[in-house]
Amino acid sequence: MEEKVSEIVQGYGGDKSYLVPIMQDVQKEFGYLSRDALTAISANLGVPISRVYEVATFYKAFSLKPKGRHHISLCMGTACHVRGAELISGNITDMLKIKDGETSADMEYSFETVGCLGACALGPIIVADGEYHGEMNIAKTTKLLKKLGKKV
């Protein structure tokens, strides 16, 4: 961990102004920002841990908790909203028994709603494990979750 963080920090020349991108890279590497990761970033960059924590909790992109094996993002941009994304969100919550931003207890699923993905022609959109699924509705979402292994 320590080594990898140091390598990422060095990649940005130890420049403190790159704190946000550095934390993004660390999160990408480990899936989330653990206490140890935050400490390592602070030590390597010479930025107080309080500041690192402030940044980690301020920006939506950072997670201090590990994510599930399957990652489901539902676009809640305005275009998707007016096309019924809220009903789909309800369906996902009902099926997975987790709310927006949560991870299931068995670490299988994480669900989050995101701002606009900018693919409004396809709304409502779900990105499941990096793959786009457009023009979603309740039935298609149920099918998708079943495909990801959710027993109903």
Binding site: V20, P21, M23, F58, Y59
Partner: peptide, 8 residues
Amino acid sequence: VNRGGGAF
């Protein structure tokens, strides 16, 4: 180039 952290 600097990447944002997802804050509106």
